[in-house]
Simulated scan of single mutants.
Amino acid sequence: MTGAVLAELMAQVTREGGDLLSLRAIAEEAGELGATRAMTRLGLADEKAQADLAELRDLLGAWRDAKKSAWKAVLGWAMRLVMALLLAGLAMRLGFAAWLE
Rank of each mutant, 00 (worst) to 15 (best):
M1F: 02
M1G: 10
G3R: 08
A7V: 05
E8L: 08
V13C: 08
V13D: 12
T14S: 13
T14A: 15
T14E: 15
R15C: 01
E16C: 04
E16L: 13
G17N: 07
G17S: 07
L20V: 13
L20D: 15
L21I: 10
R24K: 13
A25V: 05
I26Y: 11
E28C: 04
G31L: 09
E32V: 05
G34M: 06
T36N: 06
T36C: 00
R37W: 02
A38F: 05
M39A: 08
G43Q: 06
L44T: 02
K48L: 07
A49N: 05
A51W: 01
A51F: 01
D52P: 00
D52Q: 12
L53V: 12
A54M: 10
R57V: 04
D58A: 10
L59M: 07
G61F: 00
A62H: 05
A62E: 15
R64I: 08
D65F: 03
K68S: 13
S69V: 05
S69Q: 15
A70W: 07
W71P: 00
W71D: 14
W71A: 15
K72I: 06
K72E: 13
V74F: 09
V74P: 00
V74L: 11
L75R: 15
W77V: 08
A78V: 11
M79H: 09
M79D: 13
M79V: 15
R80D: 10
R80K: 13
V82K: 08
M83H: 05
M83I: 13
L85P: 03
L86Q: 07
L87F: 11
L87Q: 03
A88F: 08
G89H: 03
A91P: 01
M92P: 00
L94N: 08
F96L: 09
A97I: 00
W99K: 10
L100I: 07
